[in-house]
Design a protein around this nucleic acid. Structure first.
Length: 701
DNA sequence: GAGCACTGC
């Protein structure tokens, strides 16, 4: 195996040492560092290419190859992701060259932390403060001004901007970074940017060279930045755009595969870890596992065997890492490793893209991950699945690269080289496996039909149909699939359409204050109630203080009210203690309160009184939830399971719910996920009588 | 009887 890059030589330019035209000038240390980067040598060529082409595909090459014979199995060439050099350098080159004219340069990112930290780094390199020449804009946080020329934005933020300015006319250059991740929002932008570019750039031709500038639109340049693998596809989509290939900066990583396939990857990881620990020089180990359950089990085994090691050996420090872990425990992975100790980090793919852990020299890759995927009705589903599956080649390369951030490293893959070769090139784009309800609604607001849009990968038609049906059931679309006034209002709320519908229903029922409190918790990225498997009894006990007989929604409201009382009277430390004692995630409360502010503002704009309250009467609140959760309801059957009211699946209440084992006649729930069974999560009990006439338009099964 | 990771005027 030598190179996965499926490139056609003719259209690919390599930016190499032949271009070295940096002028010497007074530099701050960061600027000096900039000039030594490999990409700096191709700067002039890069600028020329971008100048000459409307769209440029920029490929971050990934690592220098070093082939070594493995002692247990086959050998392989190292690959690794490009570091963030391209993301910080290219916007600066464009600004310095004047390509952007008077317009702004936008750089989109799939994650908000990336947008804010890249902006901070570029501002530091340019010796300016963030929010001036260089700024960012993400949800809840913005630093930009009239002087801002380079703006790092989350992809969702640019989608929001698109809804108010359909031509994105403030920007003369838009850089779509991390395009290979193919998030739903990135694909949404890639499709719309193609149309916008053709509208803006063709009018330039009509108006001609400098004539009638008042009516001319500023042309739009696009740069799509991606890690190797699917550059050709981006190029084809943008009318065979030029692909430029930029060499990366990465230490070599030796990759080992197993000679036979492993049946128990947790056990294989355990054995491989101790092999490294006994045979290899110091350096921390990162093990990629699919989820919390495997992480907890491996943590136990490693600790057990580590205790049996001879005294004189290096000791082992095990650090679990996954998104649901409380922040205090997450922080442990960044603390420096004590002397004579080897740190062993057990992580989900949170460590693949979202966080970079220092000091990693060895990576153990189980080759597995969990993936959420919507299983459509016509394939026997109608719910999300969350199942363990094989990773992709891109993912395997990304994981290996984590060993080569600071020096040469090693990656031990717990699968054969044949298994690697059989992996899919990259993950299926989100647009083909996620709910499209919100995107369909957003496009309706732009006057477009999802079916008619030229996407790089078109969604499954069944997926579009089910989104249309949901929007119709919620009253966002009428019988002729036309956007209703209600639908337009729903789109103005930065939450899932069914949550927006619940908020709008609260106007009728006079309980907006309570509904917004609950919806803001439900829309937070992390869950409110912690789940630590060996403390589940203590957790259930602590939670009983908030328990509301109707179920999880009102229980969350009670928890939020209790937290606010503590927050109003106690110190920050006491607040944290209280959260720890009650096994609630304070981060969720903090995020929920930011979301609540946004929802309150939106209510004000669309004329809903956000103060309207029914105090402790839960009935109107539950009626609002029934309105938005029409499709997410089920009735009890004689055998104790539940059957969907609009669907045929048999479901169970998740064991984490306050209603588990309660056998109430009818339930509503926020989501349905198939893991070992089909579980309903965040469940409330409602009278069956609530289900008649819940929506203004729809009444069919 | 138990949840991969992100995001949003």
């Amino acid at each position: 195996m030598s190179n996965h890059l499926p490139r056609k030589k003719a259209r690919v330019s390599r930016l190499d040492d032949d271009e070295t035209s940096m002028k010497s000038r007074l530099l701050n240390p960061l600027q000096k560092q900039r000039e030594q980067l490999p990409i700096a040598r191709g700067r002039e060529a890069l600028i020329r290419e971008i100048q000459q082409n409307d769209t440029t595909i920029l490929l971050g090459e990934t690592g220098s190859g070093k082939t070594t014979r493995a002692f247990v199995s086959h050998h392989a060439t190292a690959f690794a992701p490009h570091d963030s050099t391209l993301s910080t350098e290219v916007p600066q080159y464009i600004l310095e060259s004047g390509i952007a004219g008077k317009g702004m340069i936008a750089v989109t990112q799939p994650r908000r932390v990336a947008a804010t930290s890249l902006a901070a780094r570029v501002a530091a390199e340019k010796n300016v403060t963030v929010g001036g020449l260089v700024g960012y804009s993400v949800r809840f946080d913005e630093a930009s001004s009239s002087e801002t020329r380079i703006k790092y934005v989350s992809d969702g933020m640019l989608v929001r901007e698109l809804l108010s300015d359909q031509l994105l006319s403030r920007y003369s250059v838009i850089i779509v970074d991390e395009a290979h991740e193919r998030t739903l929002r990135t694909d949404f932008l890639i499709a719309n940017l193609k149309t916008i570019q053709s509208a803006r750039n063709s009018r330039r031709d009509v108006n001609g060279k400098g004539k009638s500038p008042a009516s001319a639109l500023n042309p739009l340049k696009l740069i799509i930045m991606s890690a190797t693998l699917d550059a050709e596809k981006f190029s084809r989509f943008y009318n065979n755009a030029r692909i430029l290939y930029v060499k990366g900066r990465q230490h070599p990583v030796q990759i080992f595969h197993t000679s036979t396939s492993q049946t128990d990857y947790v056990d294989a990881a355990l054995r491989t870890f101790f092999q490294i620990h006994t045979d290899k020089p110091p350096g921390d180990v990162l093990i990629f596992l699919p989820g919390q359950e495997d992480i907890e089990s491996l943590e136990k085994s490693i600790k057990m065997y580590a205790r049996r090691l001879p005294e004189e050996r290096m000791s082992v420090l095990v650090c679990p890492m996954y998104a649901a872990l409380p922040p205090t425990q997450q922080a442990r992975i960044f603390s420096s490793t004590p002397s004579n100790t080897r740190k062993c980090i057990l992580a989900t793919n949170i460590a693949e893209t979202s966080i970079t852990i220092p000091g990693i020299k060895y990576v153990i890759d189980t080759g597995k991950c969990k993936e959420k995927r919507y299983l459509s009705k016509d394939t026997g589903g109608g719910f999300d699945t969350l199942l363990t599956r094989d990773i992709t080649k891109s993912s395997a390369m990304q994981r290996a690269g984590r060993a080569g951030r600071e020096g040469p490293g090693f990656c031990f893959r717990l699968y054969t080289e044949d298994a690697f070769n059989a992996m899919a090139l990259s993950a299926e784009p989100e647009i083909r496996r996620c709910s499209l309800t919100q995107s369909v609604l957003q496009l309706k607001c732009l006057g477009q039909d999802f079916e008619a849009v030229d996407f790089m990968d078109p969604p499954e038609i069944g997926s579009v149909m089910s989104a249309l049906k949901t929007l119709w059931l919620l009253g966002a679309l009428d019988n002729s699939k036309t956007l209703t006034a209600l639908g337009r209002q729903m789109a103005s709320f930065p939450v899932e359409p069914y949550f927006a519908r619940i908020i709008l229903a609260s106007k009728t029922h006079g309980c907006t204050s309570e509904v917004i409190d609950i919806v803001s918790i439900l829309s937070s990225s992390s869950s409110l109630f912690l789940d630590i498997s060996d403390q589940r009894d203590a957790i259930a006990d602590a939670r009983s203080k908030f328990r509301h007989a109707s179920g999880d929604h009102m229980t969350m409201l009670n928890a939020l009210r209790a937290y606010q009382e503590i927050a109003a009277s106690e110190s920050k430390g006491a607040r944290k203690d209280w959260c720890r004692q009650h096994f609630v995630n304070e981060r969720t409360f903090v995020e929920a309160m930011k979301i609540r502010d946004q929802l309150r503002q939106t209510c004000q704009r669309v004329g809903i009184d956000r103060h309207a309250s029914m105090a402790d009467n839960e009935e109107p609140v539950l009626r609002c939830f029934v309105t938005g959760l029409v499709q997410q309801s089920a009735f009890l059957q004689p055998d104790g399971t539940y059957k969907q009211t609009l669907g045929h699946s048999v479901i169970k209440i998740h064991p984490g719910s306050t209603l588990c084992d309660k056998k109430v006649p009818a339930i509503i729930y926020d989501e349905l996920v198939y893991t070992s069974q089909i579980y309903a999560r965040d469940v409330s009990s409602v009278p069956k009588s609530f289900f008649s006439n819940v929506t203004p338009v729809a009444k069919e099964a």
